[in-house]
Amino acid sequence: MHVFVRLAGVSAILLTTGTCFAADRMKPGLWEMSMKSDAVKAMPKIPPEQLEKMKQMGIKIPDMQNGGMTHKVCLTKEMVEQDKPPSGGRDQQCQSKNFTHSGSSYSGEVVCDMPEMKGNGTIKGSYTPDSMTSIYDFKGVSHGKPISQHMETTGKFIGSDCGDVKPPPMPQKK
């Protein structure tokens, strides 16, 4: 479960990475994101009673099936207008490195240096105002065990109103 939580956190970083540079930015609002990854494929099924406890704690569980998961994400105007890749936030120590862009395509690295997870990843992707795709590969160590992850993400814009979906936390400015 720890890898899933970290993967979800890293996905928030990766989701906003593509919004950073181009004139044709992704639209702010509600997005449906679908991820397929090795971690989701290998994850054991969570028992219904544990899922219920997680929901009672306010944890939103994405729809998971066929080695993938789908969830909704709210992107704010601030997120899509940022002029640099996001860091991992206050509670994560994954950092964006060596990002490049050309038109609506981007690539770069993610470096994680946390007690629970250390390693390096690469990301490449493209986007339009209404859609995005990315491919992420990561190799490292999580909780003392070697990991090698591959994740493919697609996203589509649903609408400008996020409803009850809250945006992921933005990193604090230093």
Rank of each mutant, 00 (worst) to 15 (best):
I147R: 04
Y106H: 08
V3P: 00
L14W: 00
S126K: 13
M57C: 06
T19H: 03
K139A: 12
T76D: 01
E116T: 10
K53D: 06
S148L: 02
L75N: 07
M151D: 09
R25H: 09
S142E: 14
F138Y: 07
M132R: 07
H71T: 12
I158V: 15
V80L: 05
F99W: 13
W31C: 04
I59T: 12
Y127N: 15
S160L: 01
S96G: 13
A12F: 08
L30M: 07
S148D: 14
G88F: 02
S105P: 07
G29K: 06
C94I: 01
P146C: 05
I13V: 13
M43N: 06
G29H: 05
M35S: 10
Q82Y: 02
M117D: 09
S37A: 08
G159R: 07
M57I: 01
S34H: 13
G9F: 00
S142C: 10
S11R: 03
G58S: 06
V73G: 02
S96P: 07
P171M: 03
S107E: 13
K72S: 13
G68N: 03
R6F: 06
P28W: 08
G155T: 03
I135F: 04
D137Q: 14
S107H: 14
Q56F: 00
E152S: 11
P171A: 05
S131G: 13
C112N: 09
G89E: 08
M1G: 13
N98K: 15
P28R: 10
K145Y: 06
F138S: 02
K139E: 12
M35D: 12
K60P: 05
V5Y: 05
P129K: 12
G88V: 01
F21R: 07
S102Q: 15
E49Y: 02
P62L: 09
L30Y: 07
M132I: 05
F157T: 03
M114P: 07
M35K: 02
E81H: 11
G108P: 02
Q65K: 15
Q149V: 06
K118I: 08
G89Y: 01
P85G: 07
Q92R: 14
P86N: 07
N98P: 01
I61M: 13
R90N: 12
F21L: 06
